[in-house]
Design a binder for these strands. Structure first.
Length: 174
DNA sequence: GTTGAGCGTT
């Protein structure tokens, strides 16, 4: 089933810590893989959902990316741009790989961005690096949202200079 | 020196 990394993250993070304080991520991964593997759900009756989706429509495949830009979350605070770059380098040509760091504290915020040359490389890297270990933390790869669509919208054109002369034009016809 | 929600600077 197609599970958004965000949702997964929420569930994992909000869930109470396991008894083992050591391998928290391992259990998470195992749970993730187990859920997708165990398709032997004893359903007494046919699931209505399957009929809704119709035949031919498979939910197992995730929708393709719309941009070669990926949003990496779950990074360790020790992870830097270089580590991220080295981690996503063998999956394609990285046009840009940067870990977002707070300008005040100067440390990584825990997420970063990677941009590939083509969507194929991005998809490959995403499917290959999604829910993988990096610096001891499980990272999640998701399509990045556009930072700013239109930075400078210019609705006005002729009202450049402060229009005070317009008053004269009106003419109060007195 | 560090523990966890989220989308970056030019």
């Amino acid at each position: 089933m197609a599970l958004s990394s965000s949702l997964l993250r929420r569930l994992l993070r909000s869930s109470t810590p396991v008894s083992s304080s050591s391998s928290t991520a391992s259990s998470i991964l195992r749970a993730t893989f187990c859920s997708s593997s165990s398709s032997s759900a004893p359903s007494p009756t046919e699931s209505p959902l399957s009929s809704v989706f119709g035949d031919g429509a498979e939910v197992s495949n995730v929708p393709p990316l719309t941009a070669p830009k990926l949003f990496i979350s779950g990074l360790s605070r020790l992870t830097t741009d270089e580590k991220l770059k080295n981690a996503f380098a063998p999956f394609g040509q990285l046009l840009e790989a940067k870990v977002i760091t707070d300008r005040i504290s100067g440390r990584s915020k825990g997420f970063g961005f990677v941009r590939y040359a083509t969507l194929e490389e991005a998809e490959n890297a995403r499917q290959e690096m999604n829910a993988k270990f990096l610096d001891g933390w499980v990272i999640f790869v998701d399509p990045a949202k556009p930072r700013q669509q239109k930075p400078a919208p210019r609705p006005d054109t002729d009202s450049s200079h402060t229009g005070f002369t317009t008053n004269k034009t009106v003419g109060w016809c007195g």
